[in-house]
Design a binder for these strands. Sequence first.
DNA 1: TAGTATATGCAAATCATTTGCAATTGCGAT
DNA 2: ATCGCAATTGCAAATGATTTGCATATACTA
Lengths: 117, 117
Amino acid sequence: MTIRLTDKRKQILQVLKRQHGTMSVKDIHNKLPKIDQVTIYRSLDLFVKNKLIKEVHLGKEGMLYEYQTEPHHHAICDDCRKVRHFTAPDEKIKKLLGLEDFEVEEIEVIVKGVCKK
Amino acid sequence: MTIRLTDKRKQILQVLKRQHGTMSVKDIHNKLPKIDQVTIYRSLDLFVKNKLIKEVHLGKEGMLYEYQTEPHHHAICDDCRKVRHFTAPDEKIKKLLGLEDFEVEEIEVIVKGVCKK
DNA sequence: TAGTATATGCAAATCATTTGCAATTGCGAT
DNA sequence: ATCGCAATTGCAAATGATTTGCATATACTA
């Protein structure tokens, strides 16, 4: 099985790269109305499996996808629903967790609260 | 608006308390087949809003609910899908995050990887 | 105990995501 | 260049989780 970087896949990845943040399938479809939603779903799955992008659950609103230039975590405001990024040294988090008998592959921190502007 | 702790709600909460772990709506419904799923959905929403229980997303499989005697985080094995709990001092995590301008209400850490038994 | 607000069940709607299948396209071998 | 086949795409329909509308049942207050 080969993974072809077709034109549509390139477009989808491009949109995600430009966004600098999370997008839903709908968001992507709005930007690329000529590409079928199903194709977007399948492409995203493929990208996730190949670790080109990340998927995150930040609420009940369905899965979100994100191209990360550098790994980061998310804080979401309960009021305005805006998402903020923040970085934290994975190694230190790992140490805090102290998980024995577990081969850690990915750590995801989701912070909920209210942003005071 | 008053929150009535009706018999059905008590049963649902009871089931969650006994579980010591996450449950899906289906899981709960299996244990309490006489209570309609819709009632379970509505009760869980209510419990979450009143902070009696927590809801977590650990995968694509839909929302999970959990009664936590003490706050903890989750590690999920990509192979066996088993969920493990672990605690970590919130204060220290908060410090690592270094979120300015954000009123933190809840921190959720989700670890993905493989458990080596 | 009557009156009213809340809770419940059922059927149907909605929303995100997946699947089946037929048509199209990309790419390597000729 | 083009033939052939595997991978990709779109469309329609299926699935699965969750929500909504509404009529009935139940709990609490006066």
